[in-house]
Structure formats: C-alpha cells, structure tokens
Design a protein around this nucleic acid. Structure first.
Lengths: 197, 197
DNA sequence: GTCTATAATGAGATAGAC
DNA sequence: GTCTATCTCATTATAGAC
C-alpha cells in the first residue's frame, strides 16, 4: 500500500491505530492527529467513522481473496491475521460501530475456513497429517483462536505492550504446536517451520 | 453471593454487564439502570467507575485463591474464567480505566499458572500424561488462550450472541482437546470428561 | 482539499435536597 | 441512602471560510 494520497494515509494509519489501541479507544481526533491532518479534513474523506472501518474491511477482504488464490502458506495466513487483528479481537465494539460487518465478516471467514479444512484433508491424503475430519475441525477452530488472540494473551498475561518479531514468532509456534502431535514421521512440506525451529 | 444490599447488587449486575457488553461499552448510566437505581446513587457507593472494577477484582482474586486451595478440577477453573472473562478479554480498555490492574492481574495469573504447571507435572509422574515440561508449558499457554477467548471466537466467528450451557461445553471440549494427544491409554482421572463425552 | 469554528450528544462525576 | 440537577469534558459530526 503506497501512501500516495491523504485517503490512503488515513487508512494505513488507522489500521495501525486500531490494532494497537483497540476499536473502542481510537477516536476521530486521535486518527487525525496520527495522520497529521485536521479532524475536519478527516470528515471530508469519510463522512462517518464507521466508513473508515468499512473501507479497511474492503482491503482486508481483498487480501484474503489474494491469499486464497495462491499456495496455502500457513505463515502468510498467520501474518494476515496479525495485520488485521482488530477485526476479530474487538468484534463487540466493531459491531456496535458498524452492524453490517457482523454478517460480512462471518461470510468471509466461512470461505477461508472451508478452504483451510480442504487443504488439511489434502495433507491427510498425502500422508503428511494423521487425523480424522472431526479432529481436523477441532484443530482448525483452536488454531483460529490462537492466531487471533495470542497477542491479547501476551498483553494481558505477560504485560507485553510493544510486540516484536520475536513475539510474532512465539505466536506462530504456539499455533503450529497444535498440529505437532498429528504430524507424520517424515518431514511434511506444509509444516517445515516446525522441524526447523 | 447474596444480594443483601445495594452495593452487592451493583457488583453482581456490573460483572454480568461487563462480561456481556465489554468494558468499553458499559457506562455508569447503563449500570445504574440495570441495577435499578439512580446514577447519583451509584456514585454514593463507588466514587469512580474504576472503583467498581477494583472491587470486582477483589472478588475474582478471592475466588481464585479458594480454587487454588481445593482439588485442581479443570472444569471449575474453566467455569471461573467464564465468570470473569472480561478481565482478560478486555484488558486494553481495562488497563486504560484502571492502570493498577495491569500488575495485579499479572501477579495473580503467575501464581495460578505456576500451580497448574505443577499439577500437570504430577500427572506426568503418575503416568496419566505423557509430555515434556517444555510441551506442557506450550500446552498450558494454549489452553489459557482457548479458555479466555473461545467465547469471543463464537461471537465474532459464528455470530453467537446468547451463550448457552451447550456453548460452554463446546469451549471446554475445545480446550480439553489440546491435551488429548498427550493422554496415556488408561483412563486418567483428571480428564474423565474427555472419555465420557 | 484543508482548515476553523461550532453544534450535538453522551460520558464520568459532583453538590445538595429529601 | 437515594434522588434531582448540573457540570465538565470528550467525541462524533457539520457548516462554511480559505
């Protein structure tokens, strides 16, 4: 995302703010200040605060669709969840701000989770994973939860406020560890990070 | 907790509100209305909104200490996390409201997690579990995350707004499933629910 | 496009009558 | 103890000058 114009600057800055401070803590004043523009100018680009979130959701959706087209790299998905974590983490405040997102977020997630399950079933057929379909579904929901909330955990539980790449790796490994007991003996391509780390 | 007086009523009602609506969405006006008293009266009992949260934290701490003294029943701990879920779930808004809780919450959690690890190590020695200490630590952090955030997941991901006992059981089973691959063959007492369900 | 000024609402909080 | 009235401040949003 290039910062060509003010609108893009608002969106990029606002995504960072929402991730860092939480949906309920980000005011239009704080957005304008972070972008370096006047609050009135902010309202020139987005008539309602909720419209910013809607525009961000469009970007989020686009990135998910792009990932769905490419190879199913777990690390990329984990990174995506990280980049847009406020969407799931603050859903209560989010849906109060923009009720329309309740359904939209769910539909997109359904699609992603369906594809993820299909990919895991492929891995079972390839002999890289050993698990029943029921076990895979439980695994998938747990890894979704870990991917979404590990950072909240680090924050509330260990007092981490500035998240580094090391923390990101920690979260990724926590999520991967769920699959470890189900891995076949020979090194599976999908989980190569597990064997390296 | 008996509803003897207005102060208790405020605390019980407020805990429910905080769990249901989120820390950032619960106003003093909404508390007063839910309790059935005037907003001015609310301020007679608690001079600051943060004082309510502090009083609730005292109760939360007391309940945790009680559980620590008794037998380490996983189901009871899961229920406790459920009853006080707003403390971890909304930590960002919580720490903004009352910064003192940042350290207090962490200290209490340290104690609980230490004891939990000790209990898991016992189970390994008893032969009910088969895992290294490192694996147990990873397991423990993942089960903490699942226990805390499964409800947020159900809300944002599946649109569940009214949580029933069935959902609570779902969350518990998701958490227990983490330990399943590490269970020994013979039925372990600690995880009896796993074998029944 | 960007700013200033200002409305409109709602939140946390206080003083004082009853 | 409980309520009414009120204050202050933050937040979303609009109108209009530049």
């Amino acid at each position: 995302m290039k910062l060509r114009n003010t609108r893009d600057k608002i969106l990029v800055t606002c995504r960072k703010l929402l991730n860092a401070k939480g949906v309920s803590m980000v005011t239009t004043a704080s957005i304008a200040e972070a972008v370096g523009i006047n609050e009135g100018n902010l309202y020139y680009y987005f008539k309602r605060k909720a419209d910013i979130v809607n525009a961000l959701f469009e970007q989020f959706t686009a990135e998910q669709l792009t990932l769905l087209e490419g190879e199913q790299d777990m690390r990329l998905w984990f990174q995506l969840m990280w980049d847009w974590r406020f969407f799931y983490r603050d859903s209560m405040a989010l849906f109060t701000l923009e009720p329309l997102l309740r359904q939209r977020l769910r539909e997109m997630s359904n699609l992603v989770q369906e594809r993820a399950l299909a990919r895991l079933l492929e891995l079972v057929e390839e002999g890289q994973l050993k698990a029943s379909e029921e076990e895979l579904k439980v695994l998938l929901e747990n890894s979704w939860i870990i991917s979404t909330y590990w950072i909240e955990y680090l924050h509330s539980r260990h007092g981490i406020t500035r998240v580094t790449r090391k923390h990101l790796e920690w979260g990724y490994q926590q999520m991967l560890s769920l699959y470890r007991p189900y891995l076949s003996a020979h090194a599976p391509s999908f989980f190569k990070e597990l064997n390296e780390g």
